[in-house]
Design a protein around this nucleic acid. Structure first.
Length: 750
DNA sequence: AACGCGACTTAGCAACGCACTA
DNA sequence: TAGTGCGTTGCTAAGTCGCGTT
């Protein structure tokens, strides 16, 4: 059965992704969802306040009436319904599973190792995990190169921080020459140390706090705002918000109703009473002078002299040095985002109901500082106070505040190169590798579950199949009206799939068409097993388009189930696993020994691309795509001409040599031959580049590379084929994956 | 069980900036 | 020397998932 899961070319490339630009998305969305939503609300509850909590009971009751029919029309009452069914079913389930051995100890036994030790989320097992899993595979060979003595402070009782020799290893190879001097610093190999085991994230934390957005600078008085054709001076508060709008004038979304409505509403809140009285219609507002002014400003910025630019750069560098680092457990670590998000107009992705709302300015009074008690606490700007200072070493953030659009919390955290992020990342891939060991068993089980007599078990099993086969996201439910209408696996609605008993010569085809995270469209047509197909038909029976496909399932149920199958298993682990295993397979398949380096890199990119397609990582084609493609083609053509010239010359040189037979002409032939060769190589390189770029038009490789692909696979591949890692990972990426670069050797197996 | 929240990962795009070219 | 093209970096939205509360 695992054959079915090998994400081969067919599956990966199978679905055409017709999504492109945002426009497309928006359009798609507009007719596909918006209207439904509206109808739904109306038709369902006739009218009114069904948001009122008191209404809930009513709903519950209503639900109960039809609760039995899995077939009756249940609209958005699923939740309540689910609840009830759940209780019953859950009980059943517990019994069931014991009975029929789904949670069979046999299985557990069959993979004793992975089922027992490391529980990735139970940090206590981390240490062991590492010992048992890695030490055998990645001898920290480097460790001994120098007998660095470490001063470990992290764990009471263990040796200390490794202050190892420089980690130049990888860099010397290619950057050797220029690097020599800028590499004096020794890199800390946290991955050679023990980890915390008890939910503690650090013992010591000191930082300088956040950098706030610069205060608003009022416009020069010559830059005017006009209302109804008449110039009007705005109060600074109102003016600031107006400038946010003015800066976006060129964007399409300032023409959207929701955007304008939200903006105007929030803008009015900032106005003085008089302003509010005067400015009553956004259509009568003329921001063009402001807009022109900002354009001029940005031109001016571009045109600044070198010195001025240098000055700014230095100032930024100063800020970075001061605020961009913290001390965590005796190591200086880079902070990811030390600047507080500046105020502006919110633009969510896709059709966001809150687009255009004012994202307010964050003040020190909004800020919570987290640091250790024994550290020097950052000072708030003069005359201000922090909202709170706390000392919570069970979390990793340094600063937090609550954002006003969704009311969610934002954080300042460390850079991916930091120990705290790196360990977690490493751990993530270890969990995925554990899944590798038991994935066959899990697949066997969900296939069994397709036959279950319990609807909820079958739903769970089909959903899991999609998550596994198609790398769908889990799909938490979202609060309606708070965010764009997007879905993942568990939240798929009937309207998102179409069933074709037969389609283009294939049987049992499911067509997916929905908006996923970031309102990126997922479109795919996949043949599925008959059982899955039949189940889907059943799940869809007597439902409306906007009913949940899996009405007896949600992410929490699914994850609870997964947790029982493997310690630490959640839906997203399947994405990581399938992405990484696909990369490994594809690399094996695509790399050929006799290719040159550019060709090997093309193979790598293709393997990477297969993963990106699997995970549906799309991008809008770069605006300059066509042009740059043309340029490249022109280069190729030129190179071709050059090649034929060179060939001609070679030919005549040969002819010449035939006649003259002296050393000099022989040498000339040799030279010409080499020239031809060189040009051929260059030509090939260009052609490879063109292919790569073309294939990459709408696909973003970065996301999978950064988040889903076990870096050790790539590092091993590089080592195996003698490719410098720099060809695969840029500087930032090498910093993030330093652990992998250091520990993976060419035999690494995911 | 469901909710709401908190913490943390994953995501695409726009601005930036640097090397190369015209 | 300015302009281009393109990779890199910054930004922050939007997910996942676990936990405590109700």
């Amino acid at each position: 059965m695992s054959g079915d899961h090998s994400h081969n070319e067919d599956q990966i490339m199978g679905g055409s992704r017709i999504n492109d630009s945002h426009k497309h998305k928006d359009k798609y969305k507009e007719h596909k969802h918006k209207d439904y939503k509206r109808d739904k609300e109306k038709s369902k509850h006739g009218n009114s306040d069904y948001k009122d909590p008191s209404d809930k009971k009513y709903k519950d009751k209503e639900k109960m009436k039809h609760k039995d029919g899995s077939t009756e029309k249940n609209k958005d009452k699923h939740k309540e319904k689910r609840k009830e069914d759940k209780i019953k079913l859950l009980n059943d389930k517990v019994k069931k599973e014991k009975e029929n051995g789904f949670v069979s100890p046999l299985h557990v036994k069959s993979e004793p190792e992975e089922d027992f030790y490391h529980s990735p989320k139970h940090e206590k097992s981390l240490k062991r995990e590492r010992d048992e899993d890695y030490d055998s595979e990645f001898k920290p060979k480097k460790i001994k190169t120098e007998n660095d003595k470490k001063v470990k402070k992290r764990k009471p009782g263990d040796e200390g921080d490794i202050k190892p020799k420089k980690t130049k290893t990888q860099k010397e190879v290619t950057d050797g020459k220029k690097k020599a001097k800028k590499e004096p610093e020794e890199k800390w190999k946290w991955w050679e140390e023990e980890r915390y085991t008890d939910g503690v994230k650090w013992k010591f934390l000191e930082h300088k706090g956040p950098v706030f957005a610069p205060p608003y600078e009022p416009l020069p008085s010559r830059v005017k705002f006009y209302y109804d054709g008449k110039p009007m001076r705005l109060s600074p508060e109102a003016e600031e918000v107006a400038t946010f709008f003015a800066k976006m004038l060129d964007h399409e979304y300032t023409t959207k109703d929701i955007f304008r409505k939200n903006f105007f509403k929030d803008w009015r809140k900032e106005m003085t009473a008089e302003e509010k009285a005067t400015i009553t219609d956004l259509k009568k507002c003329n921001f063009t002078e402001m807009s022109e002014y900002f354009k001029a400003q940005s031109e001016a910025r571009k045109a600044m002299s070198k010195e001025e630019k240098q000055k700014i750069k230095e100032e930024n560098e100063r800020l970075l040095q001061k605020y961009g680092y913290c001390i965590m457990d005796n190591h200086k670590e880079r902070i990811a985002n030390f600047r507080i998000e500046p105020p502006g107009l919110f633009r969510g992705r896709g059709d966001h109901p809150k687009m255009g709302m004012l994202k307010r300015r964050i003040r020190p009074e909004d800020i919570i500082i987290n640091c250790s008690k024994d550290s020097k606490c950052p000072e708030p700007p003069p005359g201000t106070k922090w909202k709170e200072v706390r000392h919570d070493n069970k979390v990793t953030w340094l600063v937090s505040w609550t954002e006003n659009i969704q009311g969610s919390i934002k954080y300042i955290m460390l850079n991916p190169s930091s120990r705290i992020k790196g360990e977690k990342d490493w751990q993530k891939y270890e969990t995925a590798r554990r899944l590798k060991k038991c994935v066959d068993r899990i697949r066997a089980q969900y296939r069994e579950d397709w036959k279950s007599k319990e609807m909820r078990v079958r739903q769970r099993a089909v959903a899991l199949y999609f998550i596994d086969k198609l790398a769908l996201r889990a799909g938490n439910e979202k609060e309606e009206g708070e965010t764009a209408d997007t879905v993942g696996c568990c939240s798929l609605r009937v309207e998102h799939i179409n069933l074709y008993p037969e389609n283009e010569g294939q049987e049992y085809v499911v067509e997916f068409d929905f908006l996923g995270k970031d309102s990126i469209r997922y479109y795919n047509k996949v043949p599925v097993e008959k059982r899955v197909f039949k189940n889907l038909q059943l799940f869809m029976e007597n439902k409306e388009p906007d009913d949940d496909l899996f009405d007896r399932l949600n992410t929490s149920i699914l994850n609870k189930h997964l947790q029982e199958l493997m310690d630490g298993l959640t839906a997203k682990v399947f994405r990581t696993y399938n992405a990484s295993i696909t990369l490994q397979q594809q690399l094996k398949e695509l790399t050929t020994a006799d290719e040159n380096i550019p060709a090997k890199i093309l193979s790598y990119n293709r393997a990477n691309r297969a993963v990106a397609i699997l995970c549906n990582h799309q991008r809008a084609p770069p605006k300059t795509f066509e042009k740059s493609m043309q340029n490249l083609q022109a280069k190729i053509d030129a190179k071709k001409d050059q090649l034929s010239d060179a060939k001609r010359e070679l030919k005549s040189a040969k002819a010449d040599a035939k006649v003259r037979k002296d050393e000099k002409t022989k040498k000339a032939v040799e030279n010409k031959r080499k020239a031809v060769q060189r040009i051929e190589e260059q030509l090939m390189k260009l052609e490879v580049q063109a292919t790569d770029r073309e294939e990459n038009k709408q696909i973003a490789l970065g996301t999978s590379k950064l988040n889903y692909l076990d870096p050790r696979i790539s590092v091993a591949w590089c080592k195996k084929w003698g490719i410098p890692v720099e060809k695969i990972y840029n500087k930032t990426q090498r910093e993030k994956f330093a652990w992998a670069i250091d520990m993976a050797d060419e035999d690494y197996e995911f």
